[in-house]
């Protein structure tokens, strides 16, 4: 059903220019859609930045929001995906009390089971690093919480790759360049 709300991942490619991110987020703000997570970094395409954003909404809304983002000058492409259409990953760091880890053997078990690793140890705390799907990261946090051992916790925004066989943004740029050449040739002919 189109009105059913779920988590969507919006992937945006834009020129790397000041102010672009706020133009993109303004489209969410206009509808008071809160952004669950956001990651912005250089993309594989020279000069382009990639934003990976998640939000909870319905299909009808996300379709319009994505179109309105894509329409912005200097935004090259914007697409939305459900979780089954992407490979996604988050990174999390958990600062855990060393004393509790030492006194509670189950904690080491939980960390091992989740595939996380301990990257820093000192007498006061250990830092546990984990990467995985959003729900795996939440799971470890929720498992650690009852032991009251987590001093700090941070998780990155989601990064995601599509399950497409091609990069649609590159295709768009190639097609647009080809259209430009074709039009130029036509106008020279005339």
């Amino acid at each position: 059903m189109d009105s059913e709300k779920k988590l969507y991942t919006v992937i945006v490619h834009s020129e790397h220019r000041a102010g672009l991110l706020s133009m993109v987020t303004a489209v969410f703000t206009r509808r008071m859609l809160s952004i669950e997570s956001i990651n912005a970094s250089a993309s594989s395409i020279p000069g382009l930045h990639k934003y990976t954003m998640t939000t909870i909404t319905d299909k009808e809304t996300i379709e319009i929001v994505t179109a309105q983002i894509r329409k912005k000058i200097d935004v090259v492409n914007a697409q939305y995906f459900t979780d089954d259409e992407i490979y996604q990953l988050e990174i999390a760091l958990y600062k855990v009390k060393t004393s509790v880890i030492e006194s509670t053997p189950e904690i080491s078990g939980l960390i091992r089971k989740s595939g996380a690793r301990i990257v820093e140890v000192n007498p006061v705390y250990c830092i546990v690093e984990m990467h995985g799907r959003s729900e795996e990261i939440s799971l470890l946090y929720n498992e650690l919480r009852p032991y009251e051992c987590v001093i700090q916790f941070v998780r990155s925004g989601r990064v995601a790759l599509t399950k497409d066989n091609t990069e649609r943004t590159s295709e768009f740029l190639e097609n647009h360049e080809a259209l430009r050449c074709r039009r130029k040739a036509e106008s020279n002919k005339n």
């Binding site: 935004v75 090259v76 259209l179």
Partner: peptide, 11 residues
């Protein structure tokens, strides 16, 4: 007369 992100006159 060209902005790569912007399809001014789509075909």
């Amino acid at each position: 007369d060209f902005v790569r992100s912007y399809l001014a006159f789509p075909e």
